[in-house]
Design a binder for these strands. Structure first.
Length: 248
DNA sequence: CCATTAAACACCC
DNA sequence: GGGTGTTTAATGG
């Protein structure tokens, strides 16, 4: 294995740090790494769930599919993120499509190893419980976003979600994500995403980089809302209108 | 009206 | 070549 890949693996599997040496060596033994090309599926709805899956590098989206085949909001999974414990524990099959947004490395931990850890390691149980808790938070937040939030909030929330330190510990200051990928994630066009990012950048909530985004304070970004009392909203709209007229 | 988007463009990495 | 930032014309609530 290349040294770079080794570093990538360590960064993306921080939950392994809490395991005993004997447990960790079995995990190393059983873990498989797979390269998924952009647009290809990591797993599909209806497939038998046979692994706990981690994103070692790249970017992946989880796409729930409704009965009509119509897509709902999808979730980004950034490097360091592991998912599928729900599929393993509760159902024998995946209930979502998981698609690589770009060429990605994924780790596959066999179900047997997953349950072996669950049966013997308190640390691993702790990892799973923490993860479920944090994800519940995100889903709750997502409900709010889906109902009342506008496009700017959607972008802010989508980016902030991928900077979650517990769920995606391998994401540092900089998240590698293109504006087109963000558009695919939250169902917006590239230039609408750009527009939102410019505003958020202007507020100091994030910094735009080439092919990526820096977020100094994910909580501040997550808390962003442009929903304000009507008076202030009107004032702001008038001010923006005045500026754009002036620019002509 | 207003927001959004596709298409096309010129940069820049 | 791919990602970014902008403009313009078209579209739909």
């Amino acid at each position: 294995m290349e040294p770079r890949d080794f570093a990538e693996l360590n960064q993306s599997c921080q939950w392994m740090g809490d395991l005993l040496d004997s447990e960790r060596s079995r995990v190393h033994e059983d873990l498989r790494v797979q390269v998924v090309e952009a647009g290809h599926a990591v797993c599909r709805r209806g497939d038998k769930a046979e692994h706990w899956v981690g994103v070692l590098s790249g970017l992946v989206k989880i796409v729930p599919v409704s009965l009509a085949g119509k897509t709902i909001a999808s979730n980004g999974v950034a490097p360091g993120g592991w998912f599928g414990e729900g599929a393993l524990l509760k159902r024998p099959v995946w209930k979502c499509d998981v698609i690589a947004l770009r060429k990605s490395h994924v780790g596959l931990l066999p179900a047997e190893t997953f349950f072996w850890l669950l049966d013997r390691s308190f640390a691993f149980n702790r990892t799973i419980v923490n993860q479920l808790t944090e994800r519940l938070d995100q889903i709750t937040e997502q409900m709010w976003v889906d109902r009342v939030a506008g496009s700017d909030e959607r972008v802010a929330h989508t980016v902030a979600a991928m900077f979650h330190p517990v769920l995606y510990p391998a994401v540092g200051q900089l998240l590698r994500v293109t504006q087109e990928e963000l558009g695919a994630l939250c169902g917006l066009s590239r230039q609408r995403v750009n527009q939102a990012l410019q505003r958020l950048s202007g507020l100091g909530l994030l910094r735009l980089r080439y092919g990526g985004i820096e977020v100094p304070d994910a909580h501040a970004l997550q808390a962003f809302t442009s929903i304000l009392p009507e008076g202030i909203k009107l004032q702001r709209r008038n001010r923006e209108h005045a500026q754009s007229s002036q620019a002509r």
